[in-house]
Design a protein around this nucleic acid. Structure first.
Lengths: 183, 183
DNA sequence: TCCAAAATGGAGTGTATACTCAAATTGTCG
DNA sequence: CGACAATTTGAGTATACACTCCATTTTGGA
């Protein structure tokens, strides 16, 4: 029952290929054939390791979602500026991953586990932002901080969306402006 | 070359069918077969009127995008609250269209005219918002108003995105909170 | 060294899709 | 009416796709 090394290597090759294809051409480019070609593998091998194409894509997407979160080790100590900067860096460093993030979230997958996963991460981020807001301004009520965090994160998402459509947009500058409005 | 009435009627039937299908099941539900079935038309008739399926969808999407804009007749007189309310109403009244709006914009379509169209409308809306902001606070510089309008619209887009994923989210309330932060 | 489990190749299946075309039908106008 | 263009039909084409099957090869532990 123990897995062979070669199988594990093949798995990572497939995941790498999937990630690359998603980054280059979005969901539509990530066909089974394209994935197998790029991974240097035949369909049979793919299905020896993954139950479906979607499963491979979800593995990649899950990692992308995780990457949006700033360093979890610093939770409870980071400022709003830190958190915003981490978000901006993720989006600008990995624009295609950011697009995939949006694309999958909005694609109305038959399997809504995707949406739920996104939401879980979103909620966690909101908490982190709200925490930072409250540390900066002790007079803020918890629910007020949460609401403001939702708005700020919404703004970041929306500005990222806009930047994905038009990369000449000054995403970082507007993100900072959004953060400044919360002080 | 003059068009017969019957052809015009068929065209609207096809567009109605397309709109309904998009509203009910998103892009994935709007297959050629489904559109033709619902319109009571054969594939040949469809292609007598439209060059491609995408063309029909774009016609519907274009109208939907237009609908996001509040009454153009009141441009120059409406308040931020008016504009935000119009946005909220569009999203909550037509959730599927809002999803398609996001879906098409982010899909990295082979034809980037879609993205450009979205951007054009976005820029127009930003101007409208910036105008309202400046009317409310004359001390605001034009570029400051534009930046704030971008942030506010970004927040609305982001909050709408969140609402599309989780319709129990209080979109209207947070949208109002975002608007209030701009006063 | 042996062998069962794991991995692989690759042809093949089934299905859904957008789209075409020649022929038949229908609408308009002189 | 009669001619002719606009429209419609519906069977048909081409293609892309995810996925299966299974004989063969490779792996790694006993």
């Amino acid at each position: 029952m123990a897995r062979y090394q070669v199988g594990i290597r093949t798995e990572t090759r497939i995941l790498d290929a999937t990630r690359d294809l998603l980054a280059e051409g979005g969901l539509e480019a990530a066909t089974l054939k394209a994935i197998c070609n790029r991974a240097g593998v035949q369909a049979g091998s793919f299905y020896n390791l993954f139950a479906s194409k979607e499963q491979a894509i979800m593995r990649v997407a899950r990692d992308a979602i995780r990457a949006v979160d700033p360093d979890p080790g610093r939770a409870g100590t980071d400022t709003i500026a830190d958190l915003v900067e981490a978000y901006v860096r993720f989006v600008t460093d990995q624009p295609e991953l950011a697009r995939i993030y949006l694309q999958i979230a909005v694609s109305g997958s038959n399997d809504d586990s995707v949406a739920r996963r996104f939401l879980r991460h979103h909620v966690r981020r909101v908490e982190r932002f709200a925490d930072a807001l409250q540390r900066a301004d002790a007079s803020m009520t918890p629910s007020g901080a949460t609401q403001m965090a939702e708005v700020l994160l919404g703004a970041l998402d929306g500005l990222a969306f806009r930047w994905v459509l038009d990369q000449s947009f000054d995403f970082a500058g507007h993100a900072k402006a959004a953060a400044d409005q919360c002080s």
